[in-house]
Design a protein around this nucleic acid. Structure first.
Length: 258
DNA sequence: ATGGCTCTGTTCCAGAGA
């Protein structure tokens, strides 16, 4: 089973690229972020024609997440990250697929930091830590997949010294991520490739992709029940080099569910 | 220290992203 995560940066303008990628790589599950479209503009029919059924949580102009499954309908388990009734941003959706709990998240960027946006990011991470602890404690096979907007370590950024004051790499951000990981989650890509340079994002400026000046901020975290089944993890790097690309790279894992 | 690029909304620019 292949589970992928892809921040599409606008599903409206990115639909051709998304469909091409789906057709080429045929993931069983695809978690999408940054739809940047209200719910009624989600291209469910086009995706169905490509063989994918979907659930989604849209929002006008910003954010938005979706879970796609090939040849079956994801069973929605929850939408919206618990812990703040007043949070109206569409950044979290959960589904059961083939006995696995798939959690698709778009963690806030948080810049500029410090400031209210960074406060929101850190608060969101605290809510995620609380919810993730419940998921771990359930013993269920769970994958937390998405755009975490967290650079976990210096190895995950082309020039760490330039990012120390950025919301993606500040000490508080990394500390919160480490507390999440300490619950027992496995960072799929890093566990399969301990010493490799792997990037999942390249900004549109200054030929970042061409210079391989990227960040690793899209992650697939596995609960202890699922980690032993991990057989492969990688990115579809070349997708970032195509016409009208997202600034993120599709990132995926293979699981042997027996 | 700044700006570079690309998207959305309803636009003829502003805000957000990372």
């Amino acid at each position: 089973m292949r589970i992928a995560t892809f921040n599409v940066n606008g599903i409206g303008s990115r639909l051709p690229a998304l469909l091409q990628w789906l057709e080429e790589t045929q993931p069983d599950v695809a978690c999408l972020q940054e739809l940047k479209a209200p719910g009624e503009r989600f291209p469910a029919a086009e995706l169905a024609a490509a063989g994918y059924q979907a659930i989604w949580h849209g929002q006008k102009a910003w954010n938005g997440v979706a879970i796609l499954a090939r040849g079956q309908m994801p069973i929605e388990v929850g939408r919206g990250l618990p812990g703040d009734q007043l949070d109206e941003q569409s950044r979290y959706i959960e589904a059961a697929i083939d006995g696995i709990l798939v959690c698709c998240l778009y963690l806030p960027n948080g810049n500029p930091a410090p400031g209210p946006k960074y406060d929101y990011k850190l608060a969101w991470m605290e809510r995620l830590i609380i919810h993730a602890a419940k998921l771990i404690d359930s013993g269920a096979p769970v994958v937390l997949a998405g755009d975490f907007n967290v650079i976990p370590t210096e190895r995950d950024v082309y020039k760490p010294e330039r990012w120390v004051d950025d919301a993606l790499f500040r000490v508080e951000t990394r500390a919160a991520f480490e507390r999440l990981m300490a619950q027992g989650w496995t960072d799929s890509l890093r566990s399969m490739h301990p010493d490799e340079t792997i990037y999942t994002f390249y900004d549109y400026f200054r030929n970042a992709y061409g210079r391989n000046a990227g960040l690793r901020i899209d992650h697939l975290l596995l609960s202890p029940a699922l980690a032993p089944m991990l057989t492969a993890a990688s990115t579809d790097h070349a997708v970032r080099g195509r016409e009208k690309p997202s600034d993120h790279v599709p990132t995926w894992i293979n699981l042997d569910l027996k």
